[in-house]
Design a protein around this nucleic acid. Structure first.
Lengths: 163, 163
DNA sequence: GACGATTGTTTGATTATCAAACAATATGTC
DNA sequence: GACATATTGTTTGATAATCAAACAATCGTC
């Protein structure tokens, strides 16, 4: 029951844009760094989803897994900070990874409130299995860049929106 | 009623990672172009949200508005293609923009199934109002880049994941 | 030991997204 | 023109991501 507004409105005197083969204009979007980033991101996501389909892994889940791998024992709050999401959003994320046998919530020796996140055996195995696919994905999205340009992209991206 | 798995598991013999000030390691994420893109994107989104808070505009809505401005009369399907989302997702997006008086669904002269999307007067006025903020946002996220580097980022981004 | 801060969690709300189905309309074929 | 097929906007139903606010358990500090 979405309260949709009345849909069709009066036509204006202006003729509608010529449709069909007319290429879409980006207008002011053309010059926006944020939008260029967004478009690149969308393409990368699509390629990622295709390549990783058999694992049913989202980019966010992949990030969580590799972050846990690299920082064994980190807490859910720390993970949330690293991923830029609220700690309450971390709960269902880890729930899913745990349910699939990839991640464990171990007891933290120094803080009984916190969980020490770590890879479950299935998670380590999963990473080994998807690594070749991840590399294929990386190679594909960087195919248009020379190695030097690829490095430059890394450097430039990290200079965007400092802090 | 999420069927949450049992939460706390047995600790392992390994000591949990030293916590506290230990900087987070990115591990394999470090070298992933897709992840670097994602991090830059997150920072840009945050800055965008802060700067545009008074307008209550999401990046997606901004994209739709500027795309409609630059391509008056385009259809919802075309917009969906341009934005990389399904046409059924366009419906609530336009609903909201229309409800706020920013966009109109005009009759399309050449196809009675389609809607010719165009800016409502409020939409034109809105764009004029937020343009300075958008420029401030752009200037801020590009602050770490020389003008030449900024151009290079555009060029390199468009070379990522071609088709 | 008391008090304020932090951790994980639940609940509730919004938003984004797709897939599948539908009616209305368009287009192409005979 | 009649018919088959495709497309457009929409609705419905399903996931998923996200936050904010509240809560109990626990930590750290005084």
């Amino acid at each position: 029951m979405r309260d949709a507004p009345a849909r069709r409105e009066e036509p204006t005197d202006d003729a509608p844009r010529t449709r069909g083969r007319a290429p879409l204009l980006l207008g002011r979007l053309e010059k926006l760094l944020g939008y260029a980033l967004r478009r690149a991101q969308v393409r990368v996501f699509q390629d990622f989803a295709t390549e990783m389909k058999e694992f049913g892994l989202t980019p966010g889940q992949l990030g969580a897994l590799l972050l846990i791998e690299a920082n064994k024992g980190l807490s859910q709050s720390e993970l949330g900070n690293a991923l830029g999401i609220d700690r309450s959003s971390v709960v269902p994320l880890i729930d899913r990874l745990q349910r699939r046998g990839w991640v464990r919530r171990a007891a933290c020796a120094t803080d009984r409130r916190a969980h020490a996140l770590e890879l479950a055996p299935g998670g380590t195995a999963l990473i080994q299995r998807f690594l070749p696919h991840l590399e294929a994905h990386e190679a594909r999205i960087a195919a248009g860049l020379s190695p030097a340009d690829r490095e430059r992209v890394f450097a430039l991206l990290s200079n965007i929106a400092v802090r």
